[in-house]
């Protein structure tokens, strides 16, 4: 299963090589053109079609850590890459660097902490990676400064058609687009698997610049907070509630034509769908929409509980329905169902 392979692979922002390799292997036979750019974005292009030029985007990178120093004892000092809650990190297994050296995230044992310490969150400054080595020399033989550190976790099936695992944000988007790209649409399509979304939406803007599409669709994963102790109004999305269409986030406001396109397509095809009920946090959609003289961009996400942790949950129905919705939207675009032209009046 592609999604399992993609999520179990390691690809912290700036170090997306393994994900690129999987996708290249998976899609090269289906594309007319495959290339990468100076940042590492991976592009697959195919098709002609008379319709608008379409960009599909999902980001390959995941949050993680990076080695910034060594203790004499051989423990590694790390900083966070992307937005991680420090409290999630303690006692997690990791792999470090190109050679995937295994390690664990350690902290002072609770027995040795003062009562006042025990009540506090354990900050990254008080965490370290333990490779099981006894000295800095030994550690330096295994890893180097600047090596990326990824949380490691298996992807497993669980509950009622759910998956447990890490990095669904946004490997689920990658998997959906990879599968869709294999199908035929009467369109000029470029699927881009972007880098460095988690460190400030770095990859998508330059990718959109070089493709210069007429319309872009971003497939993301977003928070589902439909859990005990959270009020209905704060659920953001509901697990199993279908693809979540974004109306507005910190980087983006959906144009009315795009909302209509997604909602009407979902209704026509009988696909359950929901709106993302949170307006904070930015996405690649915002960057793409602001490229060149403005690119019409849509954003749809798979709900994910406990996002940005190595034990998150998604629902397989949501994945399938998101895929169906994007496919439906692409067909509508191919049939000329999206008005791209804006009004021009020549007065004199």
């Amino acid at each position: 299963m592609l999604l399992k392979r993609l999520t179990e692979a390691y690809g912290v922002s700036g170090d997306e090589g393994d994900i690129r390799d999987i996708l290249k292997e998976e899609l090269s036979g289906h594309a007319d053109e495959v290339y990468t750019d100076a940042l590492g974005n991976l592009f697959f292009r195919k098709g002609k079609g008379r319709g608008p030029k379409v960009m599909l985007a999902a980001h390959m990178d995941e949050i993680g850590l990076i080695v910034v120093g060594f203790e004499k004892s051989g423990l590694l000092r790390v900083h966070k890459v992307g937005g991680i809650d420090d409290r999630v990190l303690v006692s997690k297994p990791v792999v470090v660097g190109k050679n995937k050296v295994p390690g664990v995230i350690g902290a002072k044992a609770v027995h040795l902490q003062k009562p006042s310490e025990r009540k506090k969150a354990i900050k990254i400054e008080n965490l370290y990676i333990d490779l099981g080595v006894r000295s800095q020399d030994e550690a330096e033989k295994l890893v180097s400064l600047g090596d990326y550190v990824s949380l490691s976790a298996k992807t497993r099936e669980a509950g009622d058609n759910c998956l447990i695992g890490k990095a669904f944000d946004d490997r689920v988007g990658c998997a959906i687009l990879a599968e869709l790209f294999k199908e035929d649409f009467d369109l000029d399509i470029t699927a881009v698997f972007t880098v460095q979304e988690e460190v400030g939406l770095r990859g998508s803007g330059v990718a959109a610049y070089s493709i210069h599409p007429d319309v872009a669709i971003v497939v993301e994963s977003t928070s589902a907070s439909d859990v005990v102790g959270t009020k209905d109004a704060s659920h953001v999305t509901t697990l199993g509630g279908g693809p979540a269409i974004t109306l507005m986030d910190a980087s983006y406001i959906a144009p009315q034509v795009i909302i209509d396109l997604f909602v009407q397509t979902a209704e026509k095809l009988g696909i359950p769908h929901q709106f993302r009920r949170l307006t904070t946090s930015g996405t690649d959609a915002g960057k793409i929409a602001q490229t060149h003289a403005g690119i019409l961009t849509g954003l749809v996400s798979v709900p994910c509980r406990y996002i940005h942790s190595p034990a998150s949950i998604i629902n397989i129905n949501d994945v399938q329905n998101t895929s169906r919705l994007v496919k439906g939207v692409l067909n509508v675009i191919a049939e000329g169902g999206l008005t791209l032209e804006t009004t021009t009046e020549k007065i004199k």
Binding site: L39, L65, V68, G82, L145, G146, G200, R202, G205
Partner: peptide, 15 residues
């Protein structure tokens, strides 16, 4: 080692 964007011109140049 800088884990994200740097606070220098490199930040703008790259993108």
């Amino acid at each position: 080692v800088t884990p994200g964007v740097t606070g220098t011109d490199a930040r703008a140049i790259q993108v």
